[in-house]
Design a protein around this nucleic acid. Structure first.
Lengths: 334, 334
DNA sequence: CTGTTAGCGCCTTCAG
DNA sequence: CTGAAGGCGCTAACAG
């Protein structure tokens, strides 16, 4: 009967076995220099008492929690869920716990979550920025306190911080090439908020490719990512004198909304108007009339790479410069 | 210049101000009986040093972490993300941090996550069970250690545990009534795994209603939730002598797969065959030919209610019996 | 109103 | 091979 009410401690084990706490501590962690006999007795009793080391005490004592913080804009997007997946797997494998936080794309909330993680003394932070974040000062503070931070996917402009991201320029160009092949010359482009570095990158890749196709016209609009904003953008495109026959959207979620708008206005997808996009969302395959193509941005790979960087910094102590890594996005044609 | 490298402590503040640590401790927490002047000086310096209380130390000292564990089968399903959302909001509001874990619907992983949370000394656990979990012994252990556990949505059979769930019986009946109204008499039913209590509940509600509609036939199949299993189930239904004109699926994800299978086999959704389902997934609205209806299971409400129960137990200390709560699911017709 | 002190569970020297 | 002792940051008696 082990109904001790409160969890077993090292001290309790020591008492019951008439040994010292340090012996128990060492025995439990297979420290060399503890008699086999003693070790077995200790471990047996620990198992019997259902002993679990008090991580709160260990964290306190060691000055590190073996926990890393992971801040994402939200959990609704499959992209971030897959990144989380990868981060957790790798982290757990290395004995780390992952504390997940959502910024809901609001800088204020982002700061709140970050402070909470700081209070909880995470050993490092992985973060994909909120779409409106322009101020990076708070991350500099962390650096000052020796708390490593690695950005992924939504990274600050420039490469002053450690991070992992996906380069979209050439995949964006391929997107345009694909549309050209299929005979599209009038193309709408619903880009995302300019605060996101990836928005500029899309635009750049798209414009560069368009320039190589004589007679091709790209009409640029944008969305704040909310569905009504997307609808307004789509409306603008449909109102053009020469209606686009293809649209490039910022991501698959935007594409869904834009396609719905088109259907509601009597257009048939893939006949009157076609769509290509970014994210390669798995749900899209269930659409009867879906995308021509979508750009894969490798969330799992980004998450994994970012975690590797972070853990290297965390474990490496002070003087480790983790660096900056760029993956290449890939066009996936349906 | 505050580049102290290591985070500021209460002790450091005390030293700089020539007061005792307890004064600082009290001042920071607005303890009554600290001079206004002193309090201000302390708080000012704390702010200047960017002081954050060391939660690891507090947890250690207090024997509680102000953290609750939240275990869900996965993050891919919108249902769980919405539940998480609600849990976090309420928990944070009460000063708690939420530690999220995924069981990936595997009992072994579920236990692992639970152990990790126990090691991390969470003050309580919210859990939606893995689909194959049949053993509840590990939860009894927690009870023994005085660690409160509240189940939600996927709860153990019976009501021996604290929990919140959604009753699906009457909404399931309404589903059948709706199909009858629309003139369907031959109906397929792809249910989920029998390990889930909610599967039996669906079946019960559906059969009860079917009995009230003379001439109605329900053909039962099931899926393990993997997409190939769903396809096999759908194949069986299409192979019937009298092909069903409507299908009830376990949830919207299953419906998507089943609908795709039908399309691939030349059927037109909502003409040759119609679908109704459970979950009310937001994505479904983007389908050109979608569901007739879906049953809303109120993830946010369940999460909120479960958190309320749990926090009551956590705060209430020993003798609080939290209880069991049942919400009523709601049919949403498109 | 403020200071002193003990101790939470564990690890880690330092002595035996 | 094992024991004793100190201390991580903080709170909470208990004294002044």
């Amino acid at each position: 009967m082990t109904d001790t009410r409160k969890p077993a401690t090292i001290k309790e084990i020591a008492r019951q076995l008439n040994v010292s706490v340090s012996t128990v501590s060492r025995a439990l962690r297979d420290h060399p220099g503890i008699g086999l006999r003693t070790r077995q007795r200790v471990q047996a009793l620990a198992a019997q008492l259902n002993y679990e080391p008090n991580q709160a005490a260990i964290s306190f004592k060691q000055g590190r929690t073996r926990t890393i913080g992971l801040i994402v804009p939200n959990l609704r997007e499959e992209f971030f869920c897959m990144a989380i997946q990868a981060v957790e797997e790798l982290a757990q494998q290395q004995g780390y716990t992952v504390l997940i936080g959502q910024s809901h794309d609001r800088p204020a909330k982002e700061r709140e979550v970050l402070d909470s993680m700081r209070r909880n003394r995470v050993d490092g932070v992985l973060i994909s920025l909120a779409k409106d974040t322009r101020e990076y000062g708070l991350f500099d503070d962390l650096k000052q306190y020796g708390l490593p931070v690695v950005f992924f996917d939504r990274v600050p402009a420039g490469q002053l911080y450690h991070g992992v991201r996906c380069n979209l320029a050439s995949a964006s160009s391929e997107l345009v090439d694909l549309l050209a092949e299929r005979g599209h010359t009038h193309i709408g482009f619903i880009n995302g908020p300019a605060t996101l570095a990836a928005a500029a990158e899309r635009e750049q890749g798209i414009k560069a490719a368009a320039a190589r196709h004589p007679g091709m016209e790209i009409v640029l609009t944008d969305t704040g990512l909310a569905s009504h904003a997307t609808r307004i953008a789509m409306k603008q495109l449909l109102a053009r004198e020469v209606r686009p026959t293809a649209v490039i959207t910022f991501n698959d979620y935007v594409a869904l909304e834009a396609m719905a708008y088109c259907r509601e206005h009597g257009l048939t997808i893939n006949e009157d108007i076609s769509f290509v996009s970014y994210a390669h969302l798995s749900f899209m395959r269930y659409l009867e009339r879906g995308l021509l193509a979508s750009v894969e941005q490798f969330p799992a790979e980004q998450g994994k790479a970012a975690t590797e960087l972070l853990l290297r910094m965390v474990e490496g102590g002070e003087g480790v410069t983790a660096g900056y890594q760029v993956l290449e996005a890939k066009l996936i044609v349906n």
